[in-house]
């Protein structure tokens, strides 16, 4: 059974079909990239899987269990952790508190009234920060971090409940090339050591071809190509989109 199975996912905004009939599967241990020009429907796809958007049609199954249309918190509870295209962290909390918040929620203590939050699950949070390489930033406020570091905080937060699936919407956007590769190496290592899967969108083709096991290409809401990097690279239609012979500008 596939870890993630998406069947016929569709979403329209008004008359505009953002995503149309997209189906794919994702296996444990796999790194799957979704690429496509701006406005192709990547983020919409992501948000339907993560629960931020409710699909018009289609199903999302996690380990065979249907999670279609569940709110984000329920999807999270089923074992999906995610990061956002525009990094979202709790700006008034320190880096370690951000991770502690996720741990508190995971342990069902996010609404406890009396214990001091600062002291709870601190070691666990520090271990996660160590793993993503920003332990030295633990006591800084998220509102003052460099963007690349916030992306790492998000990763640590997304990993806190031991997810089976990571959703990463443009994990390296806004980073310098060297930083991008460092982050993707880290993600690959975590995926391998935990035996989990990652689904990510990415604009940087170097990153995509270096780190994806398999690639989905979406254009105008439809899945137009799928396969390992070599095959996608050789695909005529994909080349047309990315080399600019189609009406759409390359991303």
């Amino acid at each position: 059974m596939s870890l993630l199975r998406v069947e016929g996912l569709s979403k329209a905004f008004g008359g505009f079909e953002a995503v149309r009939d997209v189906s794919f599967t994702l296996e444990a241990g796999e790194r799957l990239a979704i690429i496509g020009p701006n406005g192709a429907g990547k983020s919409t796809c992501f948000n339907m899987i993560g629960g931020q958007l409710r699909p018009d049609r289609g199903r999302v199954l996690l380990n065979g269990e249907e999670i279609t249309g569940l709110p984000p918190r329920a999807v999270w509870r089923k074992g999906v952790g995610r990061t956002f295209q525009i990094a979202a962290a709790f700006g008034s909390m320190t880096v370690v508190e951000n991770v502690q918040m996720a741990l508190l929620s995971h342990h069902g203590r996010a609404r406890a009234l009396f214990p001091l939050a600062r002291a709870l699950y601190r070691e666990e949070a520090m271990a996660l920060l160590e793993r993503v390489g920003i332990r030295d930033q633990a006591e800084r406020f998220c509102s003052v971090l460099a963007y690349g570091d916030i992306k790492r905080v998000e990763l640590a937060v997304a990993l806190a409940h031991g997810p089976r699936l990571l959703l990463m919407d443009e994990p390296t956007a806004g980073m310098a090339p060297a930083e991008r590769h460092a982050l993707m190496r880290l993600v690959s290592a975590i995926v391998a050591e935990r035996g989990i899967a990652v689904l990510f969108t990415e604009h940087d083709m170097d990153v995509v071809f270096a780190y994806a096991d398999r690639i989905l290409v979406i254009n105008r809401g439809r899945l137009i190509a799928e396969g390992p990097p070599e095959r996608v690279r050789a695909d005529r239609e994909v080349q047309a989109i990315y080399l600019g012979s189609s009406v759409e500008a390359p991303a």
């Binding site: 918190r73 709790f90 929620s105």
Partner: peptide
């Protein structure tokens, strides 16, 4: 949006 994605309604 971040809170919702870590299980806080």
């Amino acid at each position: 949006i971040r809170a919702d994605a870590i299980g806080i309604d």
